[in-house]
Simulated assay, not measured.
Amino acid sequence: MKQESVKNVLLLLAGAFVYSVGTQYFIVPAQIAPGGAVGIALMINHLTSLPIGTLTLLINLPLLVLAWFYLSHRFTVRTAVATVLVSVVLDFLVTPICPMYGGDRLLSSVYGGIVVGVGMALIFQAGFTTGGTDIAGYLLQKKFPHYSIGHALMIIEGIILLMSIFVFQDVDAGLFGLISVYVQTKVIDMILYGSDAGSQAVIITQHPQKISQRVIQELERTTTVLPARGAYSGSPTNVVLCTVRKSEFVRLKRIIGQCDPNAFVMVNETTEVLGLGFKGFAEAI
């Protein structure tokens, strides 16, 4: 337990530092606002030259107060700790010594998204969150449990990106900001979920053993066979569940088509696969 706590503290410190470097070195000179509380802080900084970290903390304060009353105290405390730490590191450690990237603005936006994404992923891995839209999302979910939070947050991020066009007086600010947000999201997903993303196939077939045998022999994977019955026909059938890496999916489709051309197949993308043949649980924790 102590070792796990030390690991989380180190991840949080490393994440705060990497996040701050990405913001100061790449995002600030690109003159973009890649969403969230820090995006609003960057716009205010552009107009007033006030410290970005302090502004981010001030923007998060009312959200933290709401989170304390409407969400869990544990979540609020951990979010507050990460927010304060990132603000302090950014304003008092990174900004005074870190230079700004002076190259191409597009590269600045892309690499800013990469570095900030790495920092945020490390913070998330430590069990903390940077606040901003994360808190807004939880609060919206609390208030409107059946509403699409993803759509709501997308609208919020879109408004921030739109505002950045007028603040920086440049259409490219919104476009480059969108690129940075996209790259950031992909980097976070890649680090948190790893490279073991795969495809899950749900196969309704009359030849489950034939398909399973070839999957075992050719892909060195296994399957789960479930008995089923068609609701319309009432006829007995079988459902074969199989998860493979994305690079193996074309071969799986070929096997299914050759074994049972009349099979009905549904495919779902999996963000992470744990267990035999994939990443072990020890690596994932």
Rank of each mutant, 00 (worst) to 15 (best):
K2F: 15
E4T: 12
E4Y: 10
V6M: 13
V9L: 15
L10N: 02
L11P: 01
L11W: 11
L12V: 10
G15E: 02
Y19K: 08
G22A: 14
Q31A: 11
G35T: 06
G36I: 05
A37S: 15
A41H: 03
I44S: 10
N45L: 04
L47V: 10
L47P: 09
T48D: 08
L50D: 00
T54V: 14
L57P: 09
P62D: 03
V65Y: 15
A67D: 12
W68M: 12
R74C: 01
A80W: 09
A80V: 03
V81A: 04
A82I: 02
L85G: 04
V88T: 03
L90H: 09
D91A: 02
F92W: 14
V94T: 07
C98E: 12
C98R: 01
M100T: 13
G102L: 06
G103H: 03
D104R: 13
R105G: 08
L106E: 05
L106M: 14
L106H: 02
S108I: 09
V110H: 06
I114H: 07
M120P: 01
Q125L: 14
Q125F: 00
A126H: 05
G132P: 04
G137E: 01
Y138S: 10
Y138H: 13
Y138E: 12
L139V: 06
Q141G: 13
K142R: 15
P145I: 12
H146R: 13
L153P: 06
I156F: 15
G158R: 06
G158Y: 09
L161Q: 07
L162W: 05
I165E: 08
I165D: 11
F168Q: 11
D170P: 00
D170C: 04
L175C: 05
F176V: 00
L178N: 00
V181H: 05
V181N: 02
L192W: 08
Y193R: 05
A197T: 04
G198D: 10
S199T: 12
S199G: 01
Q206M: 08
P208K: 07
P208G: 11
T222Y: 12
L226R: 09
L226Y: 14
L226P: 09
G230A: 02
G234Q: 07
G234N: 09
S235W: 00
S235Q: 14
P236D: 15
V240Q: 03
V240F: 04
R245W: 01
E248C: 02
R251L: 08
L252H: 01
K253H: 12
I256Y: 02
I256F: 02
A263V: 04
F264S: 03
F264T: 03
F264K: 03
M266D: 00
V267S: 02
N268L: 09
L274Y: 12
G277E: 07
F278T: 02
F278P: 00
K279A: 15
E283P: 00
